[in-house]
Structure formats: C-alpha cells, structure tokens
C-alpha cells in the first residue's frame, strides 16, 4: 500500500484530530491530538496498513515552549516496509497520555522508561514504576530543569 494513501485515509477518518503532517528524511510525521492516540494507533495497526511493530517510544523536553513535552512514537509496517512517526504534544500541567501497553507488550517497559526519565503519567499502564533509577530517587533526570550534577547516593560516601 502506498504511503500517500495511508495518510489520505487517515485524514479522511480522523480529519479534525490530525493537526499537521510533515515529512522529514523521507518519513511522514503525524502531529495528532492527545485523546485520539489510541484510536489512530489501533487504526494503523490493523490491516491493511499493518503498522504492527512499535519500534520506539520516547519523549522530548522542549523547555520554554508550549506544549513543553512531546511524545514520539515510531511505527513500522512489516508487509509494506514503511515507517511512520507520530508526535503528541503534552503540556506540563497535564502530563498524561494513554498507555499503549495493551496493544504492544514492549510499550510496557518503554513507557516505564519515559515515566522514569520525564515523569509522564500513562493511563492504563499495568505497572507504572521506575525502571532505571532506584526507589527513593527524586525528580526526573532527563528533564531540562533537572540539575546536571545533582546526585542522590544510596549509601554513605567516604568523602
């Protein structure tokens, strides 16, 4: 299936939910509304589009802009050999988004990573807790306003 056609059908079906479609390095980027994420992703995952593989899921902190955070999803369609990127803006005051853990198993840990590093709250995630940092760690280290050298040792340091 042609990629243009996928975008066209998406626009037809979710016209008011898609804010913008741009192209970078030969791959389309969809900027969408937060509340329609699950519907759009489910639509893409089903046949005939078959974006059945979640390559990566991450977050970006644009400090000083609004919305401050941006979730990025990389999808891959194995039968059509196509990639698609989905971006969702999140404001700092309301840092919540639907979890994709029900659709892809790997989203579980990827979302835990984003929660650990950025503090994004995933609705419907089965076990949302820190994955890299230890219990008792305070703050979200990949946010731009986290102090670079703020260390939180777990044991007494010698000096």
């Amino acid at each position: 299936m042609e990629k243009k056609k996928v975008i066209e059908e998406l626009k037809k079906k979710f016209s008011e939910k898609i804010k913008e479609v741009s192209v970078q390095f030969g791959d389309e980027i969809l900027h969408i509304e937060r509340d329609s994420l699950l519907d759009i992703v489910q639509f893409l995952k089903d046949k005939p589009y078959s974006y059945s593989m979640l390559l990566d899921l991450t977050c970006i902190d644009y400090k000083g802009q609004e919305p401050r955070f941006e979730m990025v999803y990389h999808l891959f369609s194995i039968p059509n050999v196509q990639r698609l990127r989905i971006k969702v803006g999140l404001s700092e005051k309301d840092l919540r988004i639907d979890s994709l853990a029900s659709l892809w198993k790997n989203a579980n840990w990827l979302e835990r990573e984003v929660f650990d590093m950025f503090g994004v709250d995933f609705k419907g995630h089965p076990e949302l807790k820190r994955i890299f940092m230890y219990d008792g760690f305070e703050g979200y280290p990949l946010r731009k306003d986290f102090p670079l050298r703020k260390r939180q040792p777990r044991i007494q340091m010698r000096k």
């Binding site: 280290p141 670079l148 050298r149 703020k150 340091m157 010698r158």
Partner: peptide
C-alpha cells in the same frame, strides 16, 4: 552526571 559515582574511592 546524575547517575555515576565520581570515582570509586568515594
């Protein structure tokens, strides 16, 4: 950075 011990002599 935030994660690494600055020398194990600590």
């Amino acid at each position: 950075n935030y994660a690494v011990v600055q020398g194990i002599d600590r």
